[in-house]
Design a binder for these strands. Sequence first.
DNA 1: CTATTATTCAACTGACTTATTGAATATAAA
DNA 2: TTTATATTCAATAAGTCAGTTGAATAATAG
Lengths: 229, 229
Amino acid sequence: MFVYLIVNMMKSREFKDVMYDGLSRLLKALANPQRLEIIEMLSQEEKSVEGIVQSTGISVANASQHLQILKSVNIVRSRKQGHYVYYSLANNEFLAMYHHIVKYAINEIAELERTLSRQREDCKALQAVSLEELEELVKNENVLLMDVRPVSEFQSGHIGGAVSIPLDELISRLKDLPGNKEIIAYCRGPFCVLADEAVKTLSEKGYKVRRLDFGYPEWKTRLMESKAV
Amino acid sequence: MFVYLIVNMMKSREFKDVMYDGLSRLLKALANPQRLEIIEMLSQEEKSVEGIVQSTGISVANASQHLQILKSVNIVRSRKQGHYVYYSLANNEFLAMYHHIVKYAINEIAELERTLSRQREDCKALQAVSLEELEELVKNENVLLMDVRPVSEFQSGHIGGAVSIPLDELISRLKDLPGNKEIIAYCRGPFCVLADEAVKTLSEKGYKVRRLDFGYPEWKTRLMESKAV
DNA sequence: CTATTATTCAACTGACTTATTGAATATAAA
DNA sequence: TTTATATTCAATAAGTCAGTTGAATAATAG
């Protein structure tokens, strides 16, 4: 009986070790600023290593290594085509989980809350629009929903009803904007500043403009979850 | 104009760095098997360093260090009383976020899925009861919901309607169990084996018994979320 | 087949993490 | 005040991680 208890205890320890080690391996893969930025890029669209390097400033070999780590815990997957290896997020469940983490961090970590507010304040974008508000606003139809990400990201997926006006074309396309509607800008997510820049530019020109609190990936996650129910 | 763009780019870089560094600091604090186990213990009840040491087998100095790390990112808080320093989770939002991570890991990481199934199979506890099923079962009243954690954990919080039968008293209290009802055992959470052991013991004695898929903390989180809506 | 380009691999350095030890601090009981 | 106990701090050694370099591989265009 005594020996039996010890054997049980050892099995239980072994089980816990496998589970906690596995979980901590996942978290370790996430726990790096550059990899988080890579995840943000990949949650917009599939990208080659070169594409990631261009939009983040990480070195090629380094980016490749980070991608291997993310691949080893099944966060990203790759496919080869021609000269390029294209990476993308391996599943939508990951994205949903990741958004929960980001939401917690933004709301509960004082430093991040403060930094985010300061950034938005600088751009006069403090009253950001939440997911719930957006749904209301879209119904009443008196708003223009503006996607300010690069065109390729818009093409690979965007919020329903949005118009693509990449930030770097904004000034040259001012004439396309209706003066009477409120403008709502959005971009890659809460850590992306493209929408902030757009709000700053437009509000200086006298437009009535706000940004979304979130980006395309969060909207997509929400869509999936509501379909699942 | 050109200088202005560069200044903007630098600001944006700085903002991203603060946000991603902060987020990765949180994830780094989580990314360690021992700290995850400490979190599991603290999500049951407030515990002193000594209490944690006893239930995990970590050394005293080491546990203290891990607790400092968790405290530095505001996951736990401490209060001093008499000889002891008592630690507890700092907020419920963290627990909700953590449960999302665990759920993802169990469902999407093949190795963890496999290990969990094997453990449950060993204990004839494969058909675990989910949160939704539990709600149904409790209504029909023909089940006994059994909390097999130590008494102190039961006292500091338990699932509504549960009866406390700590695993180590199970055999001596068999006479208290109704023979006609189905028994549903639960414990600390999906990584805890107390309920598995209980299922094994009882099913060998001929009882009709299953375990919950989750533990008290998950139930508590669910309760909070449904109240919030 | 050769040259070109994109990516990965291997090796190395410096920086952080973890676990262990023993000393220091703080509380409460004798 | 002294003593015992719980916890933290400081220093160390071993292990892991991040970023850089240059070489190796793999796909394509000429």
